[in-house]
């Protein structure tokens, strides 16, 4: 089964209205806790997991994920170890790596992609690799059976969204708001329109992310037609604040999963 097929199967799972894809910062708060968080995500009802690889200069991320990345790097996290967290999880749910472009390119694209494959990952999200820069990475991913998941935003015009939608493998990542990752009091005005435009632009499932921090917001995303919901900063904040990060995120995941049933 290719990564795209595994992702498709995870989105198609029955018994719920949409897929739940929690994000975790690999290596945060430390590598051991990170492994336990991954297990807690799967135990709590995650359908897929987005595994963030810490980077020094995460331009698309708000303060919570930035701070988690900095802390993970300070604790000594490496790309190699973080991907190994994915390997432990990959038997249970499809794992999609989230890596900034320099991490993908620094050691050579082929080598990075090989490492994703060795660790059983299903796909790759590169938040600073727009369509115009993505040909080589997409080819390398396709050659290795991995899905390169592109992003669309409220600022993306329809014509461009159609081209991005056609390039999407696995799923299309719809960024709910104009901004960086992080919890917001309410979803942006544009999110429902974005979901509709994204779904019209692609044949693969559409997952909505950025700014979804409560089960109610997740429900609203699904009501608008999203095939999946990505929850990041809320969970990373819980991992940062709790005495027992794995227990804290497990409780939250169960709430989000219940909201999507």
């Amino acid at each position: 089964m290719t990564g795209a097929e595994a992702i498709a199967a995870a989105f198609a799972g029955d018994g719920r209205r949409a897929a739940l894809m929690p994000y975790m910062m690999g290596g945060f708060p430390d590598m051991d806790a990170s492994r336990r968080i991954a297990e807690a995500y799967a135990d709590g009802g995650a359908d897929l997991v987005e595994l963030g690889i810490p980077f020094t200069d995460p331009l698309a991320d708000g303060p919570v994920i930035q701070a988690a990345g900095t802390a993970a790097l300070r604790a000594g996290a490496t790309t190699h170890e973080v991907l190994a967290v994915g390997r432990a999880l990959a038997d249970r749910v499809p794992v999609v790596a989230m890596a900034y472009a320099n991490l993908v390119l620094a050691r050579g694209l082929e080598r990075f992609v090989d490492e994703l494959v060795v660790n059983g990952l299903a796909g790759l999200i590169v938040p600073d690799l727009p369509l115009e820069e993505s040909d080589a990475v997409r080819e390398a991913c396709e050659g290795a059976g991995l899905a390169l998941v592109p992003l669309v935003a409220p600022t993306t015009p329809d014509e461009r969204m159609a081209r991005i939608g056609a390039s999407a493998r696995g799923f299309l990542y719809a960024v709910s708001l104009t901004g960086t990752t992080g919890e917001r009091a309410a979803l942006a005005d544009t999110f429902a329109d974005l979901v509709a435009r994204a779904k019209a632009a692609t044949a693969v499932p559409v997952a909505l992310g950025f700014g979804i921090g409560t089960p109610d917001q997740a429900r609203q995303a699904v009501d608008a037609g999203a095939d999946g919901v990505i929850v990041g900063s809320r969970l990373v904040r819980a991992a940062a604040e709790a005495e027992d990060p794995a227990m804290a995120v497990h409780a939250l995941i169960k709430q989000f999963a219940a909201a999507l049933r």
């Binding site: 698309a60 472009a101 727009p130 935003a153 409220p154 600022t155 993306t156 960024v175």
Partner: peptide, 10 residues
């Protein structure tokens, strides 16, 4: 090149 989030491309 243009290695930025999609939000900025337009």
């Amino acid at each position: 090149g243009q290695y930025v989030p999609e939000t900025l491309m337009p």
